[in-house]
Design a protein around this nucleic acid. Structure first.
Lengths: 203, 203
DNA sequence: TCATTCAGTTTACAAGTGTACGCTCATTTT
DNA sequence: AAAATGAGCGTACACTTGTAAACTGAATGA
């Protein structure tokens, strides 16, 4: 087999091994280089052929998780175009993603408030991106002004992520209950933003 | 000195040492028993005279942080009675607390999504308590029905905590900006909840 | 006063960590 | 065909970790 390809494969197996270790009881800062190497089936020192240290692997994982998040947004958008309440479809798509990619979402959540400034910054970037996309959507589909649209998007994303954290380790039925609650809360924000926006325009 | 008193003092110094270690780069699961003991000025094995293991110390810290949170609520309530916008006073009191007790709040945030199920549960309990108090307040001061009041309180607490996380490591000026944004977002929720509540009553 | 209790110490050990160094040997390049 | 490259391995070392065992000595209680 070609050298390049083999290297890529090993790199992949390291990343996959790390994801496997990142269950509900482990964070990036608590998995060791040796542990990941063991799980990936390579010698500890071989790890260095692929990553400078464990933090570099961590950043790679966060980036991949962010990618998955963007795929989620694309999916939600296409579903919205098929019709249905925007809020309903969005929340359900999000919750579906959370439960199907529990370890990925857990990684984002955990490192968002984690001990590594670099990881935190990387996660914040991904969430910021999420907020921007939502802001654009709001601007394109309502009469709300830019600053208020931004605030609305931010509030909504915060609610959804916070609820996602709660939904990550519960069964389908409970997740549905959480979804319903979140939908109403997003309606609060939606209605309130319109109302405040209109008042402002009146003055 | 009396034996009991001396023991209490040492226990205190262990707890204080732990808080000192819990800066922006460390979590409960990443501080070691030996490290805490070193910081507290005792031998590693003496630690066991006070706590069964490091997790027991962790739960003690979370409990203390919860206590501080309740003190914060009391402070906010008394300030509200002195007059001023409820949202404005609450948000400012909260942000003040966050910056004055950075390590305490960080502990709550970090362990909320941390690796220990026991710590997570303990933090959730504290936040839940926070939500209940706010729900009671809403019920007592508005015409919103119980289920909506509960949803409103939950949404508000989520926004405030999420913003608190953002505010924890920024300077006074930026914190003020965050406060202003949060205030508007809470108004969204407040207005939306009223509106949805009224609609429901109409039907 | 004398025996008991017990917070805190010293010493010790097995287990796990990151990583430096030098080697192998299949692939790639010349 | 010969030389260079580089992914992966084995060994080794200096550290840190949790905690077991046996101790010291001052506060306590009889």
């Amino acid at each position: 087999m070609s050298r390049k390809l083999q290297k890529q494969k090993t790199r992949r197996s390291i990343i996959d091994a790390a994801y496997r270790l990142l269950d509900s009881q482990r964070s990036l800062s608590s998995i060791s280089l040796r542990e990941v190497s063991r799980e990936a089936g390579i010698a500890p020192t071989s790890f260095y052929r692929h990553f400078k240290d464990i933090d570099e692997l961590g950043l790679t994982l966060v980036d991949e998780a962010g990618l998955a998040l963007r795929q989620l947004m694309r999916k939600a958008r296409s579903r919205i175009e098929e019709g249905g309440s925007v809020i309903h479809v969005s929340v359900n798509t999000f919750m579906e993603y959370v439960s199907e990619n529990a370890n990925v979402f857990r990684l984002l959540l955990r490192e968002h408030t984690g001990t590594s400034p670099a990881f935190r910054a990387a996660v914040v970037r991904e969430i910021q991106h999420f907020i921007e996309e939502l802001t654009d959507y709001i601007l394109g589909h309502t009469a709300i002004s830019q600053p208020y649209a931004q605030l609305q998007a931010e509030a909504m994303v915060r609610i959804v992520f916070s609820a996602g954290a709660e939904a990550i380790d519960v069964n389908k039925v409970e997740r549905k209950l959480i979804s319903n609650r979140v939908e109403i809360q997003l309606r609060f924000i939606f209605l309130g933003a319109i109302q405040l926006s209109v008042r402002k325009d009146d003055v």
